[in-house]
Design a binder for these strands. Structure first.
Lengths: 174, 174
DNA sequence: AAAAAAACAGACAAGTCTGTCTGTTTGTTT
DNA sequence: AAACAAACAGACAGACTTGTCTGTTTTTTT
């Protein structure tokens, strides 16, 4: 495993688990067992690493979502299973929420470089629901519920509102 | 105006505008024109200031919301006006989103002291909608849409999804 | 007016952070 | 084997951070 891979592997864990600002370069290179000079050979700055992290997280997260819901073909069950995926991820990752939304709160609002990466991730999620539900107002409706489920379960460290959202969706897609 | 008041006044602006971690004690006391020793006379730590800030922000935000929606008596229009309040605040505060959710992303997830303040703020918001809409599943539904509206407008620096949510609510409360 | 309390300025400690640099060692390619 | 490239360890600069402490000045209370 190359140094660059080792860095990304540890970054994936640390940035998500402890956040962007709370995770130092020194901690990353120590855990990845990479020399500092080597780190800066591959990433020109911490911001650069952040973009790389977000791209990694993007593929990782979507791959998992697709996998988790791949067996479902009916729109309604596919949507409901997507919400189950949130529960699955919360258990797996201790209610740490969404890396993209977390970083949104950590960067200055004029950082367009990172902001655009965050935006396109969420845009892709929006499209994910549009591909399941043809009605655009309805698919956005579900996207919004999905987003708040992520946030609320992080805040309350509970899946309760996800379960409740599933009930809501039962009636929406009746 | 006392030093403590001047500190809270500036903190209210800085923590919301630039975030918790990005705002230093030194910057606060400089802008508030307060000596450092005086600061630590009133607040025993930055975390202590954070709690005070959240309490201030809580009253400030709810007072504004109540005021903005006080003229509306019908449940439906009161809810819709609440969403207009988000637009109003976005324009006023440059799409900085919710201080409570922002700080949620900035603190370590085991900081129960601050976490409980965040939780009770959102609990109050949930109750706010429960007082308008008797049906609990429906009021939570609206609460969830409200929450994602805050997040999404911060992310996309746009009120588009708020307007769309208003359309959704039109049909929900038909 | 005298005494007590509060706020002042600002140095300082001890730690953090990112990013640069020097020089050595390892691994690969020719 | 010689030459090149990559990774290594780790010191260092420079700038931050929170929080403490000293001593002076201002304000309030008695």
């Amino acid at each position: 495993m190359s140094p660059k891979e080792r860095i990304l592997e540890k970054t994936l864990i640390l940035f998500h688990q402890r956040g962007y600002n709370a995770t130092g370069i020194n901690q990353i290179i120590e855990e990845a067992k990479v020399a500092k000079a080597s780190f800066y050979q591959h990433f020109k700055s911490k911001e650069d690493l952040c973009v790389a992290f977000l791209n990694e997280r993007h593929s990782y997260w979507f791959k998992q979502l697709e996998q988790f819901t791949s067996k479902e073909k009916e729109p309604k069950t596919k949507v409901l299973t997507s919400f189950d995926f949130l529960i699955f991820m919360n258990e797996k990752e201790n209610f740490r929420g969404c890396s993209f939304l977390n970083i949104l709160s950590e960067i200055p609002s004029d950082n367009t470089k990172i902001l655009s990466v965050l935006q396109s991730h969420k845009q892709d999620l929006r499209v994910y629901f549009q591909n399941i539900i043809v009605d655009k107002l309805l698919s956005d409706h579900i996207y919004l519920l999905f987003e708040s489920c992520i946030i609320e379960s992080q805040l309350f460290k509970s899946n309760q509102l996800i379960e409740q959202s599933k009930e809501i969706i039962q009636t929406l897609l009746a």
